[in-house]
């Protein structure tokens, strides 16, 4: 699986209701480094989901950047309602066949999944 198999993909809940699109993958560098490695391993922690758009420009909705003001306001408004869903709440991801065809690719979340604040601290 590659990150591109998940980014831009439509997200639905267990009942099939559309929740938005995956705009980014949240990684946490908390895995033990491999032999000879300097940096910790990067674990896939969750998916950042935006309800309206498949794209995220410079992550304005996840950072404290407020300038230039008009652009920040516009992008924050466009991404309002974005949330982070933890990886264990992901029930299924698109099959490789759906990814290759570029159609029917859907991420389904588990029933009762939690929505977390996607802000980067």
């Amino acid at each position: 699986m590659i990150a591109g198999d998940l980014i831009d993909v439509e997200v639905r809940d267990a009942d099939g209701e559309r929740l938005g699109y995956v705009v980014d993958l949240r990684l946490v560098l908390d895995r033990p480094p491999e032999a000879g490695a300097v940096l910790a391993g990067a674990r896939l922690h969750g998916l950042v989901v935006s309800p309206r758009t498949r794209t995220s420009f410079l992550g304005y909705e996840r950072t404290s950047v407020r300038a230039p003001w008009p652009i920040a306001q516009l992008l924050r408004r466009r991404h309002r309602g974005s949330f982070l869903v933890h990886w264990p709440d992901v029930a299924s991801v698109p099959s490789l066949d759906a990814t290759r065809r570029g159609k029917g690719a859907i991420v389904v979340l588990r029933r009762g999944f939690d929505r977390y604040d996607p802000a980067l601290t």
Partner: peptide
């Protein structure tokens, strides 16, 4: 417990 990064960002 570790540094947080977003793949696309």
């Amino acid at each position: 417990p570790g540094r947080v990064v977003d793949a696309e960002l």
